[in-house]
Amino acid sequence: MFKRAFSRRLAALLAASHLLLVQVPLAQAAMIDTPEVLHAQQQQVDRQQLLAMLDDQGVQDKLVTLGVEREQVEQRIQGLTNAELAQFNQQLSEAPAGGIIGVIVLFLVIFIITDMLCATDIFSFVKCIN
């Protein structure tokens, strides 16, 4: 009698463990194209280059003049979409040597527009249009 009860419990335990183990999802691996990897790496490099430009004294002076904190600009750079990042880098590569300040001014215009659209609240002097 003891063997039969033990066998039933063991069979139930094995059946339950089998059901649990069969339901484990399998990991899938896929090949990643080289252009995808290069594109992702390039975006990271572009983002780092924009952040490095904030170390320039002329850019820092312009930010102080406009009343924008460096941390806000850094957060915005980190929050850029891939398309926006590509657009900024294209404009930067086409700009003359003093174009860094132009890019910063472009950032500020974007900040003001997003403040007007109530997406952000960076500048106290910009009122939401809604």
Rank of each mutant, 00 (worst) to 15 (best):
2 F>G: 03
2 F>K: 06
4 R>S: 05
5 A>S: 08
6 F>A: 08
10 L>C: 03
15 A>Q: 04
15 A>T: 09
15 A>W: 05
15 A>S: 07
16 A>W: 08
17 S>Y: 07
17 S>P: 00
18 H>M: 07
18 H>P: 00
19 L>T: 02
20 L>F: 11
21 L>F: 14
21 L>C: 05
21 L>D: 07
22 V>L: 10
23 Q>G: 04
23 Q>Y: 04
25 P>Y: 03
25 P>G: 00
26 L>H: 07
27 A>Q: 04
28 Q>V: 10
32 I>W: 07
33 D>V: 04
36 E>T: 12
36 E>M: 09
36 E>A: 11
37 V>T: 09
38 L>I: 10
42 Q>T: 11
42 Q>F: 02
45 V>P: 00
45 V>S: 06
46 D>F: 06
47 R>W: 00
50 L>R: 00
50 L>K: 02
50 L>G: 02
50 L>Y: 04
51 L>P: 01
52 A>N: 10
52 A>M: 10
52 A>Q: 13
53 M>Q: 09
53 M>V: 02
57 Q>H: 10
59 V>H: 01
60 Q>C: 03
60 Q>H: 03
62 K>G: 03
64 V>N: 05
64 V>I: 12
68 V>R: 02
69 E>H: 13
70 R>S: 05
71 E>V: 09
72 Q>P: 01
77 I>E: 00
78 Q>M: 13
80 L>Y: 01
81 T>Y: 05
81 T>K: 05
86 A>R: 10
87 Q>E: 15
88 F>K: 04
88 F>M: 10
89 N>V: 03
89 N>H: 12
92 L>Y: 13
93 S>Q: 15
94 E>Y: 06
94 E>C: 02
95 A>V: 04
98 G>N: 12
98 G>P: 04
98 G>S: 13
99 G>R: 09
100 I>A: 14
100 I>W: 06
100 I>Y: 07
101 I>N: 10
101 I>C: 04
102 G>Y: 02
102 G>A: 06
106 L>F: 13
106 L>Q: 12
108 L>M: 11
108 L>C: 13
109 V>P: 00
110 I>H: 09
114 T>P: 00
115 D>I: 08
115 D>T: 09
116 M>P: 00
117 L>A: 13
119 A>D: 14
120 T>K: 09
120 T>M: 08
124 S>T: 14
125 F>H: 11
125 F>T: 11
129 I>K: 13
129 I>T: 15
130 N>K: 15
